[in-house]
């Protein structure tokens, strides 16, 4: 993503944003609310078109990319995007049909503990349960790149730990995992690579050690984002 800008009316959501993520790594896009994290994920997944700049995901422009490209990219949206009147396993089984060789669904369902609430419709699931179904939906196609927009928002510590383990596992298998978060704590636990965004600009970018420096990620994060948050 290079020099990307995006305006909504008078608001400059992204102001020349440049960052990248590599296969086999967890990249945490870290920033306060309104920094432009979701906008950049939506641009990277072809849901929005940037006003200017260049975006390449697996070498292709995600805007109007073909189904083969979309098959290589997994997406977990912040609002989940799940139909509400179906049961989670039936939904995942359905989504898996869009892929030629999807992930082993039973294993994925068991790994995320979704079998524990398989009989409940999505509407009646707790926030954390829904997050897990949405994460499974992002991973069901065995993506080469996974964009996960705040995958642990609202989760209890156990579920959070489990989601972290799954994201690490996906990266270990070669996926480029991009995780947005406003929690430096989460970035510290999860990231190989940290991109800090404030007010639509990248204010720090590097390995966790590089960005955290000697002061630690918390200090650096507040120093970089104070005053930048809208």
């Amino acid at each position: 993503m290079q020099d990307v800008t995006r305006r909504f009316g008078t608001v400059n959501a992204l102001q020349g944003l440049s960052w990248s993520a590599r296969a086999g790594e967890v990249t945490c896009v870290l920033g306060p609310n309104g920094a432009g994290k979701t906008t950049s994920v939506e641009i990277a997944t072809g849901l929005q078109r940037p006003d200017s700049g260049t975006v390449r995901v697996l070498g292709e422009d995600p805007w109007r990319a073909d189904p083969e490209h979309r098959a290589r990219v997994g997406v977990m949206l912040q609002d989940g995007g799940l139909p509400q009147s179906v049961r989670p396993v039936a939904l995942l089984r359905h989504l898996a049909r869009f892929w030629g060789r999807p992930a082993d669904l039973d294993a994925l369902v068991a790994r995320l503990g979704i079998d524990g609430f398989a009989g409940t419709t999505v509407r009646r699931l707790s926030g954390g349960q829904r997050q897990r179904v949405a994460l499974a939906a992002a991973l069901v196609g065995r993506p080469e790149v996974a964009f996960l927009d705040e995958p642990t928002a609202g989760l209890d510590p156990h579920s959070r730990r489990e989601v972290h383990a799954i994201v690490r596992e996906a990266a270990g298998a070669g996926t480029a995992a991009v995780v947005t978060t406003h929690s430096f704590d989460e970035a510290e636990r999860l990231a190989d690579h940290v991109v800090v965004i404030a007010s639509g600009r990248v204010v720090a970018d590097g390995t966790l050690a590089e960005v955290a420096g000697e002061d630690g990620l918390e200090q650096v994060y507040f120093a970089l984002t104070d005053g930048g948050a809208r």
Partner: peptide
């Protein structure tokens, strides 16, 4: 800080 020349998006396989 980002270096645009080295950062051209998400790299793949």
């Amino acid at each position: 800080m980002s270096d645009p020349a080295a950062r051209a998006g998400v790299e793949g396989a």
